[in-house]
Design a protein around this nucleic acid. Structure first.
Lengths: 166, 166
DNA sequence: AGTTGGAGTTCCGTAAGGGAACCCCAACTG
DNA sequence: CAGTTGGGGTTCCCTTACGGAACTCCAACT
């Protein structure tokens, strides 16, 4: 087996990593989010190898996170976030918060978010979609969901036929 | 320059990636979070190369995300999340939500979260730390923060000495 | 006709991941 | 007390992927 394919694991984290887990992908997303849309612009900002930038952009376009839009009648393209990609930015915002808290040091945060709804500088916090209260790692039980239950049922069937095993 | 070091960029996203951006790291974190603590257990679950697992565990320990605890009087260790690591799990929870929504397909989510506070199956959503309303990619302006302002001031000083440039 | 500029491609050298075998050492086992 | 077991790594080799720099393509200026 060559380099592992996270996309095939039955795990939403692994599948998400399959889309943006490769080196540079989150930073490309960040740049596109804040308005850098063109190949050379991205390349100059990130100082990424052009080869890898090409690969990453294609990958992100293939997965529906970015969309390629012509911006001229000659073959020139801009990259824009799709809805799927825009929702991925949630992830970046959480990374930003964690990095600010644990890694920024004396100098403080490199960037700030101003929330349109209240006009204040703020960060994101995770809340429960059901009761709206904060919801973090230690506030939940992790239970098998439908996809895992299906898998387990399939496994049981294959195990059933040989009883007498204890 | 060899492989790029994200940690040196003035960007909390890049710095966070420096800690958990390498392949496998988020999945290792996930496993430790749900209670897998030992080398062989992680290796068997992830089918990761032992070499890389060693490297990743050391990296995560070095960065204070995991802590290595002896669990026997012979040299045996378990890996536990630190507070810093526990807060990183926020990221995994957001990934899980995105993966569930955009990649899970027919079979539905592999796992579910039950929120202790309300007892219900739920997911996370991002809210503003200031006004508590939802806060996503399109709800904010991104502004330069203290660390970037420092950088800009330093750059200006270096540019000032040659006026006449317009 | 010649240059420019955006958007890639190609090529090469090095570094990182995969796999499997090997090692160390404290505790059991007979 | 020699031999086995098992957790937790190391070592080695091979292949793939990244970094960097040069090259290509092609539509528009000049």
């Amino acid at each position: 087996m060559q380099r592992t394919n996270f996309g095939e694991l039955v795990c939403s984290i692994a599948r998400t990593l399959d889309v943006i887990g490769e080196p540079w992908s989150p930073l490309i997303l960040r740049d596109v989010w804040v308005g850098m849309r063109r190949f050379d612009e991205l390349q100059a900002d990130l100082k990424i190898s052009r080869k890898v930038l090409t690969e990453r952009l294609n990958h992100l376009v293939d997965h529906g996170v970015l969309e390629r839009r012509p911006y001229d009648n000659r073959p020139r393209y801009e990259y824009h976030l799709t809805e799927k990609g825009t929702e991925l930015v949630d992830l970046l915002m959480v990374m930003k918060g964690w990095g600010d808290k644990w890694l920024a040091g004396e100098a403080g945060p490199p960037v700030l978010y101003r929330h349109h709804a209240c006009g204040e500088i703020a960060d994101v916090e995770l809340h429960c979609t059901h009761c709206d209260k904060p919801m973090h790692a230690t506030d939940v039980d992790v239970l098998p969901g439908p996809a895992l239950q299906l898998l387990e049922a399939a496994t049981d069937e294959r195990v059933e036929p040989q009883p007498g095993r204890r």
